[in-house]
Nucleic acid binder design. Structure first.
Lengths: 187, 187
DNA sequence: AGCTTTTAGCTAACAACGTTAGCCATGTGG
DNA sequence: CCACATGGCTAACGTTGTTAGCTAAAAGCT
């Protein structure tokens, strides 16, 4: 039997890709094993359980989202930064719906959990956007939560086909960016 | 063997309650059967499958949310209506996280799907809020999506413990209402 | 090189869950 | 009082997650 040369990182990579293809709810250990060319039980040499796999996919997704948003913000400020961040975030969720779905409903076990630090990095990217506005220190946390709720809500609703009726969705998103920008500048 | 006197509605009611208690992901046919005092296969006399049950729970949840939001808006306008709607929605999601979770990721099969009509009723309740503001007709759809994204995003993030750090969450939500109100009035 | 040790794959097997088939008792309508 | 539809049951199957135990490939040591 030739070895497949797997390691935890490769399994997580394949799992995240598969989740994007078939949907997070349909990600199964057997399907993933087939994808990486191995029998199902062999996966347990690299991840502890399906829940462990899910958490690792979530960490990967949050890290990638943080990179995407952080990179998009670079070199911009104010409205440009906000628009770049929001667009990058939504683009990431729509391009990788499966791995992003892995991040919802999973709670970090403590401050040292890689999940927590990855989440902090994503928040940091959005925080950089807020630094381009003049926001009282006491309002920064609230503004950050508002931004996260808006982006998360919009992107997940769209990813789940939650917007049924007719108006153009891209246009709505641009409108939403303008709305947030105006509100943040009026503080 | 005495009869349990079940019907589809009773099964859905028990399923929704159970989902709230144990979490939607942990809702299982066996657990629900035990709860209603019946063996697992008997449930299939009332619902077609677990997916069918999930859809019915989702319809129930959307209907209840629409009632809660619609009722809260009654007799208010402008900022009062917005605040009442947002608070009612968030309270519903936090009080019934399991059944609300059943609504995410489920797509209506067509315009006559009860799921679609229940969703429309919820949207109608939020639409009533917007009528208290002077919004150009071309912006109403965008504003509605913004409101839904904001409420959905905030409520689900909180329900999943997505807000990790310290600032008070109720305070953030009130801040968010004020933010949305100011933005909508500035149109 | 040769030997030992670790490890990544395998097969076999089990538990939990969703689901179907088929039986029987309960209740309802003529 | 009897037919019959129906809501419960037990038995059984397929799928999925998981563990145990074996074996061969790689890696390390002398």
């Amino acid at each position: 039997m030739p070895r497949a040369g797997l390691d935890p990182a490769a399994v997580v990579t394949a799992g995240a890709a598969l989740a994007d293809e078939v949907g997070f709810a349909n990600l199964t250990m057997g399907l993933l094993a087939e994808r990486v060319g191995v029998r199902t039980p062999s996966l347990y040499k690299h991840v502890g359980s399906q829940e462990d796999l899910n958490r690792r996919i979530a960490v990967r997704a949050l890290g990638e989202a943080a990179d995407a948003v952080g990179g998009a913000v670079q070199g911009h400020a104010g409205r440009d930064a906000l628009a770049a961040a929001a667009r990058a975030f939504r683009a990431f969720v729509l391009a990788h719906p499966g791995r992003y779905a892995a991040t919802i409903g999973v709670e970090p076990s403590g401050p040292d959990d890689p999940l927590a630090t990855a989440g902090q990095r994503l928040l940091g990217a959005f925080m950089a956007v807020l630094r381009g506005y003049e926001i009282p220190a006491s309002d920064v946390d609230h503004a950050l939560r508002m931004l996260r709720s808006l982006c998360h809500g919009f992107a997940t609703l769209q990813a789940d086909n939650g917007f049924q009726w007719s108006a153009d969705i891209d246009e709505s998103f641009e409108w939403l960016i303008t709305f947030a920008d105006r509100g943040l500048r009026a503080m």
